[in-house]
Nucleic acid binder design. Structure first.
Lengths: 216, 216
DNA sequence: CCAATCTGGTTAACTATTTAATTAAATCGT
DNA sequence: ACGATTTAATTAAATAGTTAACCAGATTGG
């Protein structure tokens, strides 16, 4: 049941429905696996409408990638570059990330898949932000964080670690479990419920784990 | 230049060349993005020969997935289930993994991508091993490892951590950087050389990081 | 008022292209 | 002679993209 009547809409309602449907399908099938027909069905509209609003499959897939992948990093970089003390940053990033990933657990798999098969899309990772690449945006944030890490080390509160290693470790521990969700299900015999409990446990343990790892 | 003469071969030479070519293309494009034509070109043979040896694209892609993804875990599970002390296992797994991933840095992206878009392939993760799923194979190994972790905790040498969390942490730290290689390149402005130095540094630091994280 | 018309959203049907798969015959090397 | 390999032609299905008609609500002019 539930064929949405989909009456004519002069506002962006239909366009948005298409975009949402496209997100679902592209994330599920990948860019080359996705079919315009499937997207149309998912949106409950005719296939021609997809071309009416977005010119081509490529344009549509670009839009989807920007909207989804683009939201993965900005918040993160912002925290990393803020004035918060390092230990607090750890808490914040872990919590923010696990919450975000729990809400959209398919994102990491999709993004990794896309970047793997279409590395030319990397520039789009920033989303709307114009005129600069990811590097120019992140560099100051990382510089700041590196200074903090160096200071902590000098004060004897942490072992010295480079920003890159620090950051990759943090991201690995937060994101990988979602990207490798299917493997985890298979290896441990998890179902969705086990997994979400597993993540909640992680939310508590990870900050401790990470801070401990950096003790002098 | 360099049209390999590809003389007739009664042994499996040609079949192997096709399989190798298929690996390259499937890993590069993904299962649905790969074209039989491209595989034929990569192998330097005619497209009809692909069907002569492997009946269909699906069969070929299955073979590729088994041969590549299937090699990702067995060694790992073996180490995990061995009699080695925990700290030694950490050293071994980190080293083994970073070495393996360095040799085939595209694997993680490919495997994650495939499992994400074709979760029905999970059973094939075991590769040649017949008659059992990943779970039945891993369970005893994990049980063993869990006992060791419990013992270490009881002896006051480690904080208590569940096998699942322990194992996922370990895997995350080793594999994710390869899966997210493109992001790292973009975020840090790395090139291939920077990345391999980064990994070599990791090879030294990770065991320390992990053991530290588990100190009581 | 209200019918004619305009307009943009929407659809069904169609076209053109790509691609996997098959087949039959020719060639090549051992 | 025989299996491996190529060539080329072909089929059949899938799929992105196009087109022309349709429809509903707003606009207009009488």
């Amino acid at each position: 049941m539930a064929k949405k009547k989909a009456p004519q809409s002069t506002d962006g309602e239909t366009e948005q429905r298409i975009l949402d449907a496209a997100k679902v399908v592209f994330v599920r099938r990948g860019t080359s696996g996705a079919r315009m027909q499937e997207i149309a069905e998912e949106a409950g509209v005719n296939q021609a409408l997809l071309h009416y609003y977005f010119r081509s499959k490529e344009k549509l897939s670009d839009a989807v990638f920007r909207e989804t992948a683009g939201r993965m990093f900005p918040a993160l970089i912002q925290v990393a570059g803020s004035d918060m003390p390092v230990v607090e940053k750890i808490d914040r990033i872990v919590d923010t990330y696990l919450t975000a990933m729990t809400a959209t657990p398919f994102l990491p798999g999709y993004v990794i898949s896309e970047l793997h098969h279409h590395p030319e899309r990397i520039p789009q990772l920033l989303g709307q932000v114009t005129g600069s690449d990811l590097g120019t945006f992140t560099r100051p944030a990382f510089a700041k964080l590196d200074k903090q890490l160096a200071a902590e080390a000098r004060a004897g509160r942490m072992r010295r670690i480079s920003v890159t290693q620090f950051f990759v470790n943090l991201l690995s521990l937060c994101v990988f479990p979602f990207a490798a969700r299917q493997m985890i299900y298979a290896a441990f015999g998890f179902d969705d419920d086990d997994f979400s409990k597993f993540i909640e446990q992680r939310r508590k343990e990870l900050p401790v784990y990470i801070k401990n790892a950096l003790r002098p």
